[in-house]
Amino acid sequence: MNLKSRVASLKQQLETLFPGKFTESRQLRHLPTGLREIDQGISRGIARQRISQWTGHISSGKTTLLRTAINNWCKSGLNVAYVDTQGKLLAYDWANIDNTKGKFWVIHPPETNQTTNTNIFSLLPKTNLYLQESLWSTNELIRCNAFDIVILDLGNINTNSKKQTHQGITHNVISNQLYVRLQRALDKSKAALIIVQDQITNSHPANIFIHTSFSFSYGQSQYKTTLAGIIAIMPTIECTISRNGLSQRMEVTIESSAENCLFTHPQISDRRTSNQ
């Protein structure tokens, strides 16, 4: 038995233990993001039927990059569902996404008036309720086979409410059982799942359910200036892609064209506003 066949049989055995982790990437279908740096890196986009992690500190540019990718997906006719667990998205940031070909639907947290009186969830903290409903929504969206990409945005739920065991190890609020459930739903569908969350501490143990991990951080600041002063601050985004034990670092730049409002509504000068 030569080395190649030994490696192949080893991968096969490992695949039975950890499904999806050791299959050849060629067998999986990837969704290119339209971001050159990511598509040409080791990840080759976002894998269908797998869970990808999209993390970064606040202002690391992760949501901005994701929005660009969503716009590209919708333009290509792919359907995207975004589960906004904490209801932090602002409509005007997303209004220019071209959804003529593909759908872009956002699922907001449950209405507070619906979950007041008789709901047993009202006894739980709001974060738990939102997380519970978001996980249910994600599961349903994957199972319905109507969406190509399902995004579960946990925001800072993880960092705020991580559990700590007596040994001092921090655990993700999404337990392994929940990951298994989501992975099972993905196995029966064609969708790709992206879990977006604020940066988790480095001590967090590696999660075997995550196929590809994209970690973002704030690089250097770029300023757009005029005679009056700075009009915009844009960061360079540093991205680390980790997959199958390999990792790759790169820098992603985003271009600032202009404010979206300039193209949606002509600005009317308001004489009552002081220039001082």
Partner: peptide
């Protein structure tokens, strides 16, 4: 078109 940073 969707350039600029997204707000949370």
């Amino acid at each position: 078109v969707v350039s600029g940073l997204a707000l949370r």
